[in-house]
Simulated assay, not measured.
Amino acid sequence: MSETVSFGYEDVTPAEKTARVGGVFTNVAARYDLMNDAMSGGMHRLWKDRFVRRVKPRRTDQILDMAGGTGDIAFRLAESGASVTVADINPAMLDVGMKRAQERGIDGLVWTEANAETLTFPDRFFDAYTIAFGIRNVTDIPKALREAHRVLRRGGRFFCLEFSTTQWPGFAEVYDSYSHKLVPRLGQLLANDADSYRYLIESIRRFPDMPTFEGMIRDAGFIETKVEPIMGGLVAIHSGWKI
């Protein structure tokens, strides 16, 4: 791993990024849906539905939902009857998710504080690994991908939903202006926190493009990798298999 990593448009030490990302998500945990609505115009709900349809969770599956603290993906996965473990490095996000699960009467989910880079689960334990809008905030992404590969059983499926770079002519410029100028203002207006929202937008710009990230997934050991662009690549579903 290099001596510096990106925190938005800044280059910082790995330890500083981990700490500062933790601060961002502690700040936004209580307003996580609001944050995603601001960043996606509310479309994140449809994208998450589509993502879970691609996972095709089965009743017999053991699924690890990484960086899933507030439960958005886990609640959808659990409708299949699958056994879902929700893991997140941030306890504030987990607190929000557990409260939401209680309010919705959703039982049976396992909630655990965990770092995607250093999972404590045994080798070949899960049938599927999901991560939605979380991988770009990981300090050492290749290490997290290798951990995902390690904890999956043979035949296990990896799925990642993440912002990317849209290839639609004209739309990229419109979204870039919206995200850089309006989203931090909304963050200040609605959550009194422009800086956290500004980082989240900047982190999208620093994230690898679709072919590069697909290559990183292959380098971690996955085969039959696939990228499914949404809205021209504004968001993408990445997937791969472990053999």
Score class of each variant (00 low, 15 high):
residue 44 H to L: 04
residue 209 D to W: 03
residue 232 G to H: 04
residue 51 F to C: 03
residue 109 L to C: 10
residue 234 L to Q: 05
residue 222 F to H: 05
residue 231 M to F: 14
residue 72 D to A: 12
residue 183 V to I: 07
residue 15 A to R: 15
residue 174 V to F: 14
residue 18 T to I: 14
residue 8 G to R: 00
residue 126 F to G: 06
residue 121 F to M: 02
residue 95 D to F: 10
residue 9 Y to Q: 14
residue 170 G to P: 05
residue 231 M to N: 13
residue 228 E to K: 12
residue 54 R to D: 11
residue 104 R to T: 07
residue 228 E to L: 11
residue 205 R to M: 12
residue 225 T to G: 12
residue 8 G to A: 06
residue 94 L to E: 06
residue 57 P to N: 02
residue 167 Q to T: 14
residue 150 R to F: 07
residue 26 T to W: 00
residue 183 V to A: 02
residue 231 M to R: 00
residue 242 K to V: 01
residue 134 G to L: 09
residue 40 S to T: 08
residue 211 P to H: 00
residue 119 L to E: 02
residue 56 K to R: 15
residue 50 R to P: 00
residue 51 F to L: 06
residue 7 F to E: 01
residue 88 D to G: 07
residue 160 C to M: 06
residue 68 G to C: 00
residue 32 Y to N: 01
residue 193 D to T: 04
residue 130 T to K: 10
residue 196 S to D: 05
residue 222 F to K: 04
residue 218 R to D: 14
residue 11 D to V: 01
residue 180 H to T: 10
residue 236 A to I: 01
residue 151 V to E: 01
residue 205 R to T: 11
residue 19 A to N: 15
residue 228 E to I: 12
residue 10 E to M: 10
residue 160 C to R: 02
residue 187 G to D: 01
residue 184 P to D: 02
residue 118 T to K: 15
residue 202 E to A: 09
residue 169 P to M: 11
residue 216 M to C: 00
residue 119 L to S: 04
residue 23 G to V: 05
residue 169 P to I: 05
residue 168 W to S: 13
residue 235 V to D: 03
residue 214 E to H: 07
residue 100 R to H: 11
residue 95 D to V: 08
residue 112 T to M: 12
residue 173 E to V: 13
residue 206 R to I: 10
residue 96 V to G: 07
residue 11 D to W: 10
residue 50 R to E: 05
residue 74 A to M: 08
residue 177 S to M: 08
residue 230 I to M: 15
residue 178 Y to I: 04
residue 242 K to I: 02
residue 22 G to P: 01
residue 56 K to M: 11
residue 38 A to Q: 08
residue 33 D to Q: 09
residue 146 R to Y: 12
residue 35 M to R: 05
residue 210 M to H: 11
residue 106 I to C: 09
residue 90 N to P: 02
residue 180 H to K: 14
residue 167 Q to I: 08
residue 196 S to Y: 00
residue 152 L to G: 02
residue 235 V to H: 03
residue 208 P to E: 08
residue 128 A to V: 05
residue 70 T to S: 06
residue 72 D to I: 05
residue 143 K to W: 04
residue 67 A to W: 05
residue 107 D to W: 07
residue 134 G to I: 00
residue 199 Y to R: 04
residue 86 V to N: 02
residue 36 N to F: 06
residue 243 I to Q: 14
residue 61 D to H: 13
residue 65 D to W: 08
residue 127 D to C: 06
residue 17 K to H: 03
residue 131 I to N: 07
residue 204 I to Y: 03
residue 229 P to A: 13
residue 127 D to H: 13
residue 34 L to M: 14
residue 96 V to L: 11
residue 189 L to K: 11
residue 74 A to I: 04
residue 164 S to I: 08
residue 4 T to M: 09
residue 1 M to R: 15
residue 180 H to Q: 14
residue 111 W to E: 01
residue 23 G to K: 13
residue 49 D to I: 08
residue 97 G to A: 10
residue 130 T to Q: 09
residue 221 G to K: 10
residue 13 T to L: 09
residue 42 G to E: 08
residue 96 V to S: 07
residue 187 G to E: 01
residue 221 G to M: 12
residue 92 A to L: 04
residue 125 F to V: 06
residue 233 G to F: 03
residue 73 I to S: 08
residue 64 L to T: 08
residue 203 S to W: 00
residue 95 D to M: 13
residue 121 F to N: 01
residue 210 M to N: 13
residue 141 I to H: 01
residue 123 D to Q: 12
residue 98 M to P: 11
residue 5 V to L: 05
residue 10 E to L: 09
residue 172 A to V: 00
residue 32 Y to K: 02
residue 232 G to I: 06
residue 224 E to G: 06
